[in-house]
Amino acid sequence: MKIKTEAGERHVLAVTVDNEAGILAKITGLFSARGYNIESLTVADISADHALSRITIVTSGPPAVIDQIIAQLDRLVPVHSVTDLTDQGAHVEREIALVKVAGTGDKRIEALRMADVFRAKVVDTTLSSFIFEITGTSDKVDRFIALMRECGLVEVGRTGVVAIGRGSEAL
């Protein structure tokens, strides 16, 4: 017998929650307990009184599963709202990566040239290394990192996706 899996589509969810101890464990635990995917998850306090956090989750699944994920998140006691930005339409997604490239000679020059093409900033340098800061969609960050692998990439740190809907409407 083979275990079957279903193909899914990518969705970006914005979840506002009470900024309380254990909330992140509650959210991630829900995903692991129910077998949902997390492709990326970011969280930070967003209110003046530090009472609310916004969690951005990139997940994937068939439409019925996405619907369940939203309903399951929404019924957690500390969750204020769940918005499916993908479903809502136009939104901006950004991710930051810090990319360390080590080496000398041609590869170093090529790395700098490509960083320029991608509008990555140099935030640290030594005679034998650069750290680039790149901001963009996950796709763009992926492509930059793939190119840097050819140019002496030694370390990467990524924030995961934050996203917000376009226009004057707010959550």
Binding site: G22, A25, K26, V77
Partner: peptide, 14 residues
């Protein structure tokens, strides 16, 4: 306790 019961309670508090 709150970790262990996080997913078998409707809600919990420490």
């Amino acid at each position: 306790t709150v970790g262990i019961t996080r997913h078998c309670t409707k809600h919990n508090y420490l």
